[in-house]
Design a protein around this nucleic acid. Sequence first.
DNA 1: TTGAAAGCGCTAACAC
DNA 2: GTGTTAGCGCTTTCAA
Lengths: 333, 333
Amino acid sequence: MNIYDIAKLAGVSIATVSRVVNDSPKVSEKTKEKVRAVMAANDYIPNVFARGMSLNSMKTVGIICPSVSDHYMASAVSYLEKNLRNYGYDCILYCSGYEQEDKEISVQMILQKRIDALLLVGSCYAGDKEYGEDITYIKKASEEIPVFLMNGFISGENIYCMLTDDYQSVYDAASAMLASGRRQILFLSDSYSYSAMHKLQGYEDALKAAGIPVLGERKVYIKNEIHLVRDILLARRDLEFDGVMATDDGLAVGAVKYARAKRLSVPKDISIIGYNNSELSIGCEPELTTIDGRGDLLCKMTIDSLMEVLKGEDVEHRKYVQCRLEKRCTTDF
Amino acid sequence: MNIYDIAKLAGVSIATVSRVVNDSPKVSEKTKEKVRAVMAANDYIPNVFARGMSLNSMKTVGIICPSVSDHYMASAVSYLEKNLRNYGYDCILYCSGYEQEDKEISVQMILQKRIDALLLVGSCYAGDKEYGEDITYIKKASEEIPVFLMNGFISGENIYCMLTDDYQSVYDAASAMLASGRRQILFLSDSYSYSAMHKLQGYEDALKAAGIPVLGERKVYIKNEIHLVRDILLARRDLEFDGVMATDDGLAVGAVKYARAKRLSVPKDISIIGYNNSELSIGCEPELTTIDGRGDLLCKMTIDSLMEVLKGEDVEHRKYVQCRLEKRCTTDF
DNA sequence: TTGAAAGCGCTAACAC
DNA sequence: GTGTTAGCGCTTTCAA
């Protein structure tokens, strides 16, 4: 059943059918109704390829994230997909992994799909500072279609950055921890991403503001696996600390496990703060005080901006979302 | 830059270029090299729409799952996406939610995208037994394209079911719990899905085999939220139990929290088994014995079958994966 | 307000 | 092994 069949059955030309499908105003209501009736009666579905070919668009946005098995990103993708569909856009999903080369390949491949916009979920796309990673592949993509970064910043004509205020939230949380009397706070991270660097800065500035030296040994980088974190912390007998500021709940739970193994009381002997307000943070014991990055708000903001850009409106290139501290049992303030 | 430009520049016909793009064996190596050089030099990208139109396929598979914010499904989607891409297939993703109507709409919409196959991730698509949900929308889809069910069974010509042996794993786990001396085992579930029904059956049969009565009040259905599970269990003062068989780790962790609140020792006073071997199961305290549904294997099996079906080969309509009990601290066997 | 017809870029059947 | 050409189903001028 194609446009010709419908045209024939409705006694009009294919042009008219096309206009009805696209709800053009220059078709009389009468004709519209007649054609619509025929379409409905025959379960007519316009061929997306032919359509895409003419329009050179598929009403599709590409989403790339390192991995949807990370809970934070999974929630984001879920939210984005649902809402984009409400606006009539489909999502094609690529999980790129964290390697520079894989990220580049993913972007390159997804661009070939003639997507209308590109959504990069995860701050690892803003260029890993440790390795001085290249971001020209993103700049290049932005020459073809608008690019949206979720929690990362790259300046550019056609690049829109949705940011979580990681710096401030960690600054505030670390300050509160210091105010509660902690003096040796560990910074626990698994990444050098844009977001992680800002968290680190917040941590360092909070210490400085309190007149406490920032020691390199107190910044621990480690893979995000609960038991691994526990074991490495246990092995580092030289390291003394009475507080932990983690960039993810998994790391923080590792610290909780460490405390338990060392028979330290939490939060009395050691104060711990996680990040992301994930299910883990209420699954562990004691339950974790954690910073909620408000992924839902960030997503909403992203969708809104995306739709405006696609409509050709002018949109801010940088927008912020405020984090929120979720106080639970691993802190005493 | 289109196929005509390339043909002109390479001094061949568009048909030859097309053949080179599709790596047809009937082009001489010499010509191939020449054409490839021109394509590379000009960053030629074949137009996917025109291609889709001729082939009536976009080399795309549709994936529907209720929600990727569930960790089990997120892992599955991540795995599927990555591997399908290795085979040259893209994924378009729909998160349908759990409502019957939404599931139907999702399937209907995704079918319009001219996908080559449909992947239904999550046993909720096999028809929720409680409400006697309709599965004709899936049968209908299978008339157009092959449908793959991950952990669900529907018989049909063009439907392929990849199954986890939930029945046996719960039967074995419950039997082990009984063997360790428990007599009042709770069955904790949040769903009436195909998978959940099989788990229930395994539970019931294990009790029966041990000569223990199956009591309705010991089958508790509840939303999968840790604190909620704890609170409801605490509120049910009539309920006595010394073991918990949960259909998900979140529910099981709720039971762990319940035990803690009641100052019961785990596993001494109460034995708990979860399901899915998620991060939660090692985040909680004590750590959770859990059944690993082997989502990775299930995905692998699915991809393999999918590729065979797409190649037109004969494939079994039902395949099983064995679960594995991950013993940790909430059980004493 | 409607229709006729020219593409859009590609694949595949057919001819050489 | 290569070229010619007829579609594929739609959108969009241009005319009427």
